[in-house]
């Protein structure tokens, strides 16, 4: 049962990533692209957690946590740059 659930989830997350990339390409504005990137980060960290279950290892946990943190910092820096034209004032 879990095998099928995992395969189903892998498929859905793959489709989600494809849709996010489509939004990343289509734009039409910069904030849209930043939002798409942010969603890509979050979807890929969920995908990493699922991969950890698939391979029965906890080694991916730290990677997922790091993606969460760096993704947040990247989004904030990009949004801040759009707002002010500068990251650290």
């Amino acid at each position: 049962m879990l095998v099928y659930a995992l395969q189903f989830a892998f498929g859905l997350f793959g489709l989600s990533l494809l849709m996010n990339i489509l939004r990343l390409i289509r734009g039409p504005h910069l904030p849209d692209r930043i939002l798409a990137l942010d969603t890509i980060y979050i979807n890929s960290l969920a995908l990493l957690l699922l991969l950890g279950i698939w391979h029965n290892t906890m080694a991916y946990f730290e990677a997922a946590l790091l993606i969460a943190m760096l993704g947040f910092i990247g989004t904030v820096a990009a949004a801040k740059f759009l707002l002010r034209g500068d990251i650290i004032e």
Partner: peptide, 13 residues
């Protein structure tokens, strides 16, 4: 897992 994947999919949609 199916619940989480479905919601992430709907969000991307």
């Amino acid at each position: 897992i199916v619940l989480g994947a479905s919601f992430a999919f709907i969000g991307s949609l």
